[in-house]
């Protein structure tokens, strides 16, 4: 009986310890959340068959921008926008030139003569060496310039605010515009729910425009007549989901489409016919619910993607 006190003390201690452990286990404190009965999960769609992934990440360059904004590729050089600067980077990642800008840029296109930079609602043209040639007048207070493409000394502008493609000469004279209506009687053409509206020329000079509200890519003649389109609406790997996908795209030298998506962030390749071909980078490569990477490709079919969340350029090469 000498140890009776100790035994009682140990029993009480055990009870206290058990209560603390159980209390902690059942606690709902902020860092200890149980299962969310209302969880919205797309986890099952983030899993990609490894056989479909036909590219691997071989290199990445960290960007010094607080807010990277866009990228263009022209003859072994990357032209990267961010903050109020343009950086010209070699394809091995060396900084070749930096140009200060007077405003926050949104988009860029480069050809043999010009660097064309889109700001919120106006354009500035620069020589290929970076000297300012001309700052254009505003395209209108409702304009939101999201993408640029050059063909035969003409500039094509994707304007998400006006929901139109605008066609200009390189000195800023408007030639025409079109809103993607496939027939006169159609109520709407391009359906642009947010600031994602991309266009590009393939190597054959065909103008393709994303219609993000339709999950489609549409081919137009230069005067704005629709020639063909393809559509892929699905949350599965072979389609596009959400309101504004594909958010970005570019072309491979053979005319295949490289698409980049927001929400379920992934980069994929579709054949020139629009048939799904393979995956460049699966969602696991990116930040959950991150921004859609902007993509460009080089002459060898390598793909450079601007990862806006990780603030880096990531190079994906065919396996």
């Amino acid at each position: 009986m000498k140890n009776k006190g100790i035994v009682i003390f140990l029993i009480l201690l055990t009870i206290v310890v058990v209560v603390i452990i159980v209390g902690d286990f059942t606690s709902t404190r902020p860092d200890k959340q149980g299962e969310n009965p209302y969880e919205f999960s797309v986890d099952e769609y983030t899993k990609v068959d490894p056989d479909l992934i036909q590219y691997k990440e071989t290199k990445n360059f960290r960007l010094v921008f607080e807010n990277p904004e866009g990228i263009a590729y022209y003859k072994q050089k990357l032209y990267v926008l961010g903050d109020q600067r343009l950086q010209v980077i070699s394809n091995s990642g060396n900084l070749l030139k930096e140009i200060e800008l007077n405003d926050f840029p949104t988009s860029i296109a480069v050809d043999s003569t010009y660097i064309i930079i889109g700001f919120n609602n106006y354009i500035s043209t620069y020589s290929i060496n970076g000297e300012l040639i001309k700052k254009w007048d505003s395209l209108g207070e409702n304009s939101v310039i999201t993408s640029l493409a050059v063909w035969n000394n003409e500039l094509f502008i994707a304007d998400a605010g006006l929901r139109k493609v605008l066609r200009y000469t390189m000195d800023g004279q408007k030639i025409s515009d079109f809103e993607g209506k496939h027939e006169e009687a159609a109520l709407h053409g391009f359906i642009v729910p947010s600031g994602y509206f991309d266009l590009a020329f393939n190597t054959y000079g065909d103008l393709w425009v994303v219609n993000p509200g339709n999950h489609s890519l549409e081919n137009y003649s230069l005067d704005g007549s629709m020639r063909e389109f393809w559509q892929a609406s699905s949350v599965q790997i072979d389609g596009f989901s959400g309101c504004c996908n594909p958010a970005q795209f570019t072309f491979l030298p053979d005319g295949s489409f490289v698409t980049s998506e927001k929400g379920l962030v992934r980069i994929k390749i579709y054949k020139p016919s629009g048939e799904f071909k393979c995956v460049v980078a699966a969602p696991e490569k990116f930040t959950d619910e991150g921004y859609a990477p902007e993509v460009v490709s080089d002459e060898n079919g390598n793909i450079y993607a601007v990862d806006f969340n990780k603030k880096m350029i990531r190079l994906f090469e065919p396996v």
Binding site: V42, Y45, P193, G213, V235, C243
Partner: peptide, 26 residues
């Protein structure tokens, strides 16, 4: 709001179709 037909807040990601059917609602 984009007033989208394919609203990500209204429809399940794998909805059979863009309709008001209960099985398609998130």
């Amino acid at each position: 709001c984009g007033y989208c037909d394919l609203c990500g807040g209204y429809l399940k990601p794998d909805a059979n179709e863009r309709s008001t059917a209960a099985e398609n609602q998130l």
